[in-house]
Design a binder for these strands. Structure first.
Length: 692
RNA sequence: CGCGGAGUAGAGCAGUGGUAGCUCGUCAGGCUCAUAACCUGAAGGUCGGUGGUUCGAUCCCAUCCUCCGCAACCA
């Protein structure tokens, strides 16, 4: 395996169109931070880059909606996001933004260099254009009539009614989804990165040389490569972004996906120029072959970080390429996918208000349940259990036991280390085993399991105390009591180090309690970290229980949001409702076969054990009949139907439902929201009258 | 439709061509230094469905079902 002198770690640039939530944290920032902190503990040179992605269309739409400038939108979220990261201890060496001057210049220069070297192809195409606003539209912002099912309001890329994939050209009478304006077509020129030219090289580099990448990453890349790469446009017709630095490209900007990853580089440059003594030249971090580049991202970014961005770097030719791209899957929240627009998320800024000082608890819960191999679910019940049963009961409790016992028997001074018994040695060996396993897992980007190993050290500590029972020994053998507590405290000191990448705030607190300075990773697995007679600091609780009412408050909040969303979606549905297509032509003869009659409802009640069926007892003028109808959900009180005359089909063969026989079918109209309304006659007629 | 990932005890996750594992929860014991915490033990699974390859499949192959991504907002 290749050896490296330094590591450059990037984490996906969050889009400045909203605050960051637990999904971002679990998928990208906590794992990246754990890895970076681990490398720093090892004393390896590492640079951790982050920043806000502030270009693209959605921020401009939000600005328009809120009646403020796009700059105000990105300013607001950049501030919110960077504060959240800082509070959660995401230890970026630099956190900048793509609207920075240095980035604009750097990205424009990057483009221009590739342009001058003939790395792009130019292509003129016809795109949909709104003459009134003077804007070209993205596929998704174009709507029209579906050519297949002829439903109105199909999107430019897909019809949601029939589910077919479309291209905007296929739509009948396309219009602007935002303002409803009709669209025309207009020629526009764009620059494309010919990914097809990099196909062979990418195949060699990924499929042959990086078989160690995670299955989801490797599989996704293979899928794209097998499908054959096509040139990809790297410019857009838009006024928000980095102007294309080419003559005759007015009104065009770099595609957000072209400039965003360059932000990793320009942010590095910004840091290096600010503190050259500490960080040296930015080119060392990006162009020296002995630098190792790691991208932490979510699964939706795999293609850009493994195919597009490497091709951009290769096109330049002077840059290093990522050594690994540990992409995570997604985190769900209480069974539903996290959604910014539907407010289905736990926002970091809100979490900190509700759980002040509990950053580590969330970090722990998210790492313990990190979506490393598949989508995982975050639940508040799990969060509470992780805190109460693991952080408090195992880790915090062990620390507290060791500290309190020392306080009690040795006035808070580290007691003398004794001769190790076989059992002591066994425990020490067990802990060293956990330590080396943890380090191995950290190197393999398996943070969930690594954290579990750290917790196993605390488990071993609890078991040691339970087996040694120093509170009993203290009555007979103070020397052995001292030895047992000495080793217990050494284990506590190990826990401080082992948990440091995962729970930085707690480790800091624990160092205060132990009254020690930060040491390197070499100390891990040693049992002479605290010298005899060392005065410990004040005993405090490392973690505290989270009570049910705090969890219930979060669940209530989510329930409220869910209800609001449902109401809103329903309103939306009603607004968009339109009559179903007319069925294929039929004839009077076909209709005549159906015998529709009038009857009076004598009784109407719910069918036991069925949430849909109503049982109608009808006076049909022919001795009466019973009909079951699946409309209970539209009639919470079925008795309102009693006495009404209804229309029903009289000549269907009887059918058994829920053990009862239904002799026909009541006719109901279906309203836009799915509500069923029973049909009736406009004036009383005799029961048994025919409809036709 | 296609391509990629995933489906394993009540929950969350590992894992392997040969007797299926971890954490939490549950139940039963033990202990009392500790935040009713800790320690020990037990129960609990036709490893998504169906076919096939094999002496043997949870693992390999085929096919189907479900969820997610590629593909609006979004990791």
């Amino acid at each position: 395996m290749k050896t490296y002198k330094r590591t450059l770690v990037t984490s996906a640039l969050p889009y400045a169109n909203g605050p960051v939530h637990i999904g971002h944290l679990a998928g990208v920032y906590v794992p990246a931070d754990i890895y970076v902190r681990y490398l720093r503990m090892k004393g390896e040179p590492v640079l951790f880059v982050g920043g806000s992605d502030e270009h693209g269309v959605p921020v401009t739409i939000r600005a328009r909606k809120e009646g403020i400038t796009t700059q105000q939108v990105v300013d607001r979220y950049h501030k919110l996001i960077s504060e959240s990261f800082e509070q959660f201890g995401i230890s970026f060496d630099v956190y900048s933004r793509t609207t920075s001057e240095i980035h604009h210049k750097f990205a424009a220069d990057y483009f221009r260099r590739l342009y001058d070297n003939g790395k792009f192809i130019e292509q003129t195409t016809e795109q949909f254009y709104d003459p009134e606003t003077g804007e070209f539209l993205t596929d998704r912002n174009i709507r029209g009539e579906c050519p297949h099912c002829h439903s109105k309001g199909a999107y430019g890329d897909q019809c949601e009614k029939c589910g077919r994939t479309l291209s905007p050209d296929e739509l009948i009478e396309p219009y602007n989804a935002i303002n409803g304006n009709p669209l025309t077509k207009k020629e526009t020129k764009h620059w494309y990165l010919p990914l097809d030219q990099y196909q062979q090289w990418l195949e060699q580099w990924i499929l042959e040389e990086h078989k160690e990448w995670r299955p989801n990453v490797y599989g996704q890349c293979k899928s794209w490569l097998d499908g054959g790469l096509k040139p990809r446009a790297v410019t857009r017709d838009l006024d928000w972004g980095i102007p294309v630095p080419v003559e005759g490209a007015e009104g065009k900007v770099l595609y957000v996906w072209f400039d965003a990853p360059i932000g990793y580089i320009s942010n590095t440059k910004e840091l290096c120029e600010r503190e050259p003594a500490k960080w040296g030249n930015w080119e060392t971090w990006w162009k020296d072959q002995s630098t190792r580049l790691i991208h932490f991202i979510g699964k939706d970014n795999i293609v850009f970080h493994c195919i597009v961005f490497p091709s951009m770097l290769k096109a330049d030719g002077t840059y290093i390429l990522p050594d690994n791209v540990p992409a995570n899957e997604f985190l769900n929240l209480e069974g539903d996918k996290i959604s910014t627009s539907r407010n289905w998320a736990v926002w970091l800024n809100e979490y900190l208000q509700d759980f002040p000082g509990k950053q580590d608890v969330l970090r722990y819960a998210l790492t313990a349940n990190a979506p490393e191999t598949k989508d995982n679910d975050f639940t508040w019940a799990d969060f509470q259990a992780r805190n109460n049963n693991e952080l408090v009961a195992i880790y915090g409790n062990f620390v507290n036991r060791a500290m309190v016992l020392t306080q009690k028997y040795f006035a808070g001074k580290v007691p003398a280390q004794g001769a190790y018994t076989d059992y002591d040695k066994q425990i020490m060996q067990e802990i060293q085993g956990s330590v080396s396993e943890m380090l191995r897992l950290l190197d393999a980007f398996r943070f969930r399991d690594a954290q579990k190993e750290a917790m196993n050290i605390a488990r071993a500590g609890n078991k040691y105390l339970a087996d040694m029972e120093p509170w009993k020994l203290a009555k007979t053998d103070m020397e052995r009591t001292a030895a047992v507590l000495n080793l217990s405290l050494q284990i506590v000191a190990n826990l401080e180090i082992a948990f440091r990448p995962f729970l930085p705030f707690s480790s800091e607190k624990l160092r205060k309690m132990l009254n020690v300075q930060e040491t390197g990773i070499d100390s891990l697995g040693k049992f002479d970290l605290l010298t005899d007679g060392h005065q410990l600091g004040e005993v405090a609780l490392l973690f505290e229980k989270i009570e049910d009412d705090a969890i219930q408050a979060q669940l209530d909040r989510l329930a409220r949001i869910k209800k609001e969303n449902e109401e809103q979606e329903k309103a939306e549905e009603l607004k968009n409702w339109h009559p179903a297509e007319i069925k294929a032509a039929t004839s009077i003869d076909d209709f005549d076969k159906t015998d529709i009659r009038v009857a009076t409802v004598l009784d109407c009640k719910n069918v036991k054990k069925s949430d849909r069926l109503l049982e109608f007892t009808l006076d049909d003028g022919m001795g009466g009949r019973t009909i079951l109808s699946g409309i209970a959900q539209s009639y919470p009180d079925p008795s309102v139907l009693v006495g009404k005359q209804v229309l029903y089909i009289a000549n269907f063969p009887p059918r058994k439902m829920m053990g009862k026989e239904s002799q026909g079918m009541i006719l109901s109209a279906v309203d836009a929201d799915g509500r069923l309304v029973v049909t009736t006659v406009s004036a009383p007629v005799r029961n048994g009258a025919q409809v036709g």
